[in-house]
């Protein structure tokens, strides 16, 4: 079947979709957006978290056909989403710096890569905070955590630690022990707070 949807602000179509495919599969394998991750495919890890009509969901549990005509934001669209929020005057803080600084990574550049995707060169504040706070190790949980954390900070700009833990309780991380993730979300919230405070 054919599935038409809007992803990160762009109208997209996928053809020959098998009816049992998930939105996650369509994003990763048909639309060139492998940022959403396939860690458990049973809704237990949150690494595939995307926003479906604004709401964070596990894209592995959305049947592809259910996404017909709907709006999806993935990790690849987070920077643009933050940009749109900032333009509306919502608390988002200064834009992050430009992307890769010329240092080589590993892995990411070694393979044949994916189908033509959407490059995101700027970082949203929460993305920048994850990099700065050391919240990224293997990084497989990171995209889902970013989408969830970004949405929480949109709703709750000054979360307590318990609020952060509750909001991120659907996102498993196996590398960090979560402490640096807590640091990152606190940092993003603090920067967001500074950005809306009037200058002295």
């Amino acid at each position: 079947m054919r599935v038409s949807l809007t992803v990160n602000g762009r109208a997209r179509e996928a053809d020959d979709v098998w009816e049992g495919e998930s939105l996650l599969y369509v994003l990763r394998e048909r639309l060139g957006l492998p940022g959403s991750k396939n860690a458990c495919e049973q809704g237990e890890c949150g690494s595939c978290t995307v926003r479906l009509d604004d709401v964070p969901v596990c894209s592995c549990l959305v049947a592809a056909g259910q996404a017909e005509g709907r709006e999806v934001v993935t990790v690849e669209g987070l920077a643009a989403l933050a940009g749109r929020r900032a333009a509306r005057g919502a608390p988002d803080g200064p834009d992050g710096p430009d992307g890769p600084d010329g240092q080589g990574g590993q892995g990411g550049q070694g393979g044949p890569g994916g189908p033509p995707g959407e490059g995101a060169t700027r970082l949203s504040p929460v993305q920048q905070a994850f990099v700065d706070a050391g919240a990224v190790q293997c990084g497989f949980c990171t995209p889902g955590l970013l989408v969830a954390a970004d949405e929480m900070l949109e709703r709750n700009p000054a979360p307590t630690d318990a609020d952060i833990r509750e909001a991120l309780s659907g996102n498993l991380c196996r590398c960090t022990g979560y402490e640096k993730i807590m640091d990152a979300v606190r940092l993003a919230a603090a920067r967001q707070g500074e950005a809306v405070r009037p200058c002295p």
Partner: peptide, 16 residues
């Protein structure tokens, strides 16, 4: 880090 937070870092399961 930057590739990992933008979703561009290519993991083994992302190969295509």
């Amino acid at each position: 880090g930057i590739l990992k937070v933008t979703g561009e870092f290519a993991y083994a399961s992302d190969m295509w």
